[in-house]
Amino acid sequence: MKPFAYDRATDADGAVATVTADPDAMFVAGGTNLVDHLKLGLVTPEHLVDVSRLPLDQVTEREGGGLRIGATVRNADLAAHPLVRQLYPVLSHALLAGASGQLRNVATTGGNLLQRTRCAYFQDVTAACNKRDPGSGCAALSGWTRYHAILGTSSDCLAAHPSDMAVAMVALDAEVVVLGPDGERRVALEHFHRLPGDRPDLETVLEHGELITAVEIPPLAMARRSAYRKVRDRASYAFALVSVAAALDVQDGVVRDVRLALGGVGTRPWRARVAEEALVGGPATEAAFAEAARAELAAASPTDDNAFKIPMTRSTVVAVLSGLAGEETR
């Protein structure tokens, strides 16, 4: 770990000003991902600005419905929040499916969105990685890719986004509130993470010095009956092979509205727009769910190691939507 200066921020504007002014500075909040990366030598900041004690730790109801979630709200507290449990169970379930109790007590909302891929080669400084070291190549292309993405990949990067929380949030049309030196702006979460393309090192639309201060979730009545399902290599405490976040509104056997997002398969939290379009107005049947998943996955480009994710994603989408449809008609 390269030596670094440490400052604890007392106000958000000051934190933004400090990091903006110093190209070698980074924000740290819970640190569960950053400290890991400091130890591995993946990042070598010279200055850390600790934003974990900024007064951004509240979950509040927005006027007109929906929630505003402060950026430093801990994952455990967000999952347990009564309004989240009641209005957006998919978000509680996604949070609780992630990491462990200890990590969820520390990891923050903003940090979760910014957590970086668990690609084994990204995490090994002796491996070529276009994300860590632009232009160095991609060791994963000739390596082990069981956990890699099948959607949104490029010839430069296959790394999957690891968050569970973000998958639920992207299904819920969340917006990220960002504070920069010139003030606040909002970005739809769906467009917050970039596809790797030929610049996998550019992971989000944030500029250096910009700080996530909140995530806002609009009202969505059907989200009261929403679900998150995570398929993984352990029953708990493991990253997703495939995960599915969904909310479904069915009336008289017809899909009126649906939100569907995928984890473990995308280079970013994957909003399944193609599948959603295929579903709306059609029958709420297993066959239709499978067909919609197939349509979404038509663009997939798997490796030998992770080709199983195509049928696994399809099966999981069918299982989740069938479960929600069953609840609807019960």
């Binding site: 640190g31 400290v35 200890q102 990590l103 520390v106």
Partner: peptide, 22 residues
């Protein structure tokens, strides 16, 4: 690296991993 739990302590009463905290 936050992958085993052996370093768990209580910080202000809550369980946390001491290996990932500065």
């Amino acid at each position: 690296h936050g992958q085993c739990g052996a370093c768990t302590v209580l910080v202000d009463g809550r369980r946390q991993l001491s290996c990932l905290g500065l």
